[in-house]
């Protein structure tokens, strides 16, 4: 994609622990275009959150970005000095998190937190900042935004809090928002309301989203593009429709077979055998090998992420359809 706003190239984030180096993110590449939503999918521990934190350069010690580029509007974030990076956060790229109960400071009023977020980037009076904050709340569909400014987070429901977090992320009209499973903790009807809202915001404001989730049904209804992550690497990527219609990587196929809404009616739900490997003991070659039904000897070497048809896949024996 040449019109990409954010393009991550060969990103590597490793954790230097006592048990050894954990390669939580090991050569991840993807890109997102203006107003588009990329679904970043994968099992727990596959490195989705670490990828998100890396883009904002908010990885906690002992984690460190050790390689790759993070091109945001053509500028490499990995090379910015700390102050330039701070000015980028919130203004050009923002992030929201999974647990709406924890992301807002429990002892500060919504208005106080929003005003601080606004003043981090523009010189403005508190009164004007409050007006902007109110407008931002209205934008994400929060009723009576004026009153909400003066309440504490615990006065709001989980769904409302997540809307507030989204409003805060949108304050400076960033080019990209990284959303780390923001609807996982919410019930299904609230989730679908928020997903619809996000779709509308992406279309209206041109903000691009990287939507981290392990829920394929969320991705299929929300995302334009999809990137499937396994053990720190992207194993398959492409337009959502194309990938989901014909998954080529055995892992993607396995994921889909285990989701009720994706499996064909009457077909048995199959869990992928085995469990997510520990990063400390990855197998040689393809990380998915011990769980893969198609594995052969050649899989002891790492396959590259290569274009195949209209998507990309990292597999020696991709599932290709046979013209029957």
């Amino acid at each position: 994609m040449s019109d990409a706003i954010l393009s991550v190239e060969e990103l590597q984030t490793h954790f230097f622990t006592r048990a050894g180096v954990l390669k939580a993110v090991d050569g991840v590449s993807f890109s997102v275009g203006k107003g588009r939503i990329l679904g970043l999918v994968g099992e727990s521990g596959s490195g989705k959150s670490v990828t998100g934190y890396s883009i904002l350069r908010l990885v906690d010690a002992p984690g460190k970005i050790v390689g790759g580029r993070i091109l945001l509007k053509g500028k490499d974030l990995a090379a910015l000095d700390p102050e330039a990076m701070r000015r980028t956060r919130g203004a050009v790229v923002s992030m929201i998190f999974q647990d709406p109960m924890m992301t807002l400071n429990p002892v500060l009023k919504i208005g106080t937190q929003m005003v601080a977020a606004i003043k981090a980037h523009v010189k403005i009076s508190t009164a004007d900042a409050r007006k902007q904050a109110r407008d931002a709340l209205a934008l994400v569909g929060i009723p009576a935004p004026d009153e909400r400014l003066d309440v504490y987070p615990h006065h709001l429901s989980g769904g409302m809090r997540q809307r507030v977090a989204i409003a805060i992320a949108l304050l400076h009209k960033p080019a990209v928002i990284i959303a780390d499973e923001p609807t996982t903790a919410l019930d299904v009807s609230i989730q679908s309301q928020i997903l619809a809202e996000v779709r509308r915001l992406a279309d209206q404001t041109g903000t691009a989203f990287v939507w981290v989730t392990h829920d394929l049904s969320v991705v299929s209804s929300l995302a334009d593009d999809i990137a499937v992550m396994y053990a720190g690497r992207i194993v398959e990527s492409g337009e959502t429709g194309a990938v989901l219609a014909h998954p080529k990587h055995p892992y993607t196929a396995g994921l889909m077979a285990s989701v009720p809404s994706q499996a064909e009616r009457g077909q048995k739900l199959v869990q992928i055998k085995g469990s997510t490997p520990s990063l400390a003991h990855l197998p040689e070659g393809c990380s998915f090998r011990p769980r893969c039904p198609r594995a052969t000897d050649i899989c002891k070497t790492m396959p590259a992420l290569l274009p195949l048809g209209d998507t990309k896949v990292r597999c020696h024996h991709p599932i290709v359809e046979h013209a029957s």
């Binding site: 701070r86 923002s94 992030m95 807002l104 500060l108 601080a116 977020a117 977090a165 992320a169």
Partner: peptide
């Protein structure tokens, strides 16, 4: 999480500590 979120908004470290 709220400190991580405050940093994600681009708050200065002095503000992260001094306010949150």
């Amino acid at each position: 999480d709220y400190v991580r979120f405050a940093r994600a908004q681009g708050l200065k470290e002095s503000k992260v500590v001094g306010l949150h």
